[in-house]
């Protein structure tokens, strides 16, 4: 409540808030990387134009892994601190994480079809991502099916911790299970004869990674703030009821 009133007291609103600035920055950098990806970087010789999806797939995949790592940490901290902030952050991470992972899997499948001649293979990385996605969906389902209050937040955090712990086990077990491996080095500076081309590939990938990191960070910040606003609405509602209740 105190936080709410102080934020209402700060009446002078800037022209562009920090959150909007972050969104603008990430939008323009994603645009810039799209320009690099589709117009600047040369086409890879072996795979042709479809290889350009790598510049989307790899950054989004790394971002989704980072977000799920964050979910593990924030869940553990929430159980320790029991503060709504950490729960809001976990929830934001779960939602944005599932979105990023969906994009990863879809872009991966689009890339895989022409290169491996299959939409999907059951290799360790792909399988781990799919299991992570299932756990992310289970997290959101658990939140949706829990009654309002702390209990849903706590059991979701327990899931967050257990899911984080199981992820490496999934990876190793699938690796042990079969002998398929993720074709990480289908393309790279090393393979390319021309070092200038190699450098431009590296730069494009770098810019794209940075801009997608910014983009998902912006989404996370927005989702977090929205969640906090939802909590504030609940708190206001309670406060209001309290005042009405006190009248004779």
């Amino acid at each position: 409540m105190a936080r709410l009133t102080t934020s209402l007291q700060q009446k002078r609103l800037p022209l562009v808030t920090r959150r909007e600035l972050l969104l603008l920055l990430s939008a323009s950098s994603v645009m810039a990387s799209l320009v690099l990806i589709f117009f600047w970087v040369p086409t890879e010789i072996n795979q042709g134009v479809v290889q350009r999806i790598m510049y989307l797939h790899v950054p989004v995949a790394l971002a989704s892994l980072a977000i799920f790592g964050l979910l593990f940490v924030t869940s553990a901290v929430y159980l320790w601190k029991r503060s709504q902030r950490w729960d809001a952050l976990s929830y934001a991470a779960a939602e944005v994480g599932v979105l990023a992972l969906t994009l990863t899997i879809v872009t991966g499948a689009i890339w895989a079809k022409p290169t491996w001649n299959a939409w999907w293979t059951w290799e360790p990385m792909l399988t781990t991502l799919l299991i992570l996605w299932l756990m992310g969906v289970a997290y959101l389902a658990l939140r949706a099916y829990s009654p309002p209050g702390e209990r849903g937040a706590r059991s979701a955090a327990v899931l967050g911790v257990l899911a984080g712990l199981t992820a490496p086990f999934v990876y190793f077990s699938v690796e042990l299970w079969g002998n398929l491996s993720h074709p990480e080095k289908v393309i790279g500076p090393g393979r390319s004869a021309d070092s200038e081309i190699g450098a431009s590939i590296g730069l494009t990938l770098m810019v794209s990674m940075l801009s997608f990191a910014l983009f998902f960070a912006a989404l996370m910040v927005h989702r977090y703030k929205l969640r906090r606003s939802e909590d504030d609405v609940d708190a206001l509602h309670l406060f209001n009821m309290q005042r009405r209740g006190s009248r004779p």
């Binding site: 299991i131 299932l134 756990m135 969906v137 289970a138 389902a141 658990l142 899931l159 257990l162 899911a163 199981t166 086990f169 999934v170 190793f172 077990s173 699938v174 042990l176 299970w177």
Partner: peptide
């Protein structure tokens, strides 16, 4: 929904 993904390694083993 909760149990299956987390116990994938055990199931594979």
């Amino acid at each position: 929904l909760l149990l299956m993904p987390v116990t994938v390694p055990v199931f594979l083993g």
